[in-house]
């Protein structure tokens, strides 16, 4: 395996892990449900995406063909993350979950 591929794989792995961790920190740290929604939809999706891409590069440098499953996983995550976020936000609005005091603007009735 070339050094370049090794570096690319390692960097992608570390970046992916870091984003996944940051998404989880956001989930644990941010003050209310709606702000917590941001961590998982963006940081975690990107993090897992990066890890999956590094897996694609790894197996293709081993000469076992390009992985369609990996690409399907990524496409699936990027398609579903906004939908689950939207749906959970609707559920939270229905339950009238509390927002932090400095939130401006209004939620909608469900």
């Amino acid at each position: 395996m070339s050094t370049f591929a090794e570096i690319a794989i390692s960097v992608l792995l570390l970046v992916g892990g870091a984003f996944t961790l940051i998404g989880a920190i956001g989930l644990a740290r941010l003050p209310d449900f709606y702000t917590r929604l941001h961590g998982p939809t963006k940081a975690t999706t990107v993090g897992v995406g990066a890890i999956v891409v590094s897996s694609v590069i790894y197996f293709s440098t081993l000469g076992r063909g390009i992985g369609v499953e990996e690409i399907l996983v990524t496409v699936f995550l990027f398609m579903t993350a906004p939908v689950s976020a939207n749906f959970l936000a609707k559920a939270a609005m229905h339950l009238e979950v509390k927002t932090t005091e400095n939130t401006r603007g209004q939620t909608w009735d469900q």
């Binding site: 399907l72 699936f76 398609m79 579903t80 906004p82 939908v83 939207n86 749906f87 609707k90 609005m93 909608w108 009735d109 469900q110």
Partner: peptide, 19 residues
């Protein structure tokens, strides 16, 4: 403001064939 389920409809149309 009333809301609708447009996003779920579209998502179902795209995701269900893949599933």
């Amino acid at each position: 403001m009333k809301s609708n389920t447009l996003i779920l409809h579209t998502a179902a149309l795209f995701i269900m064939p893949l599933q």
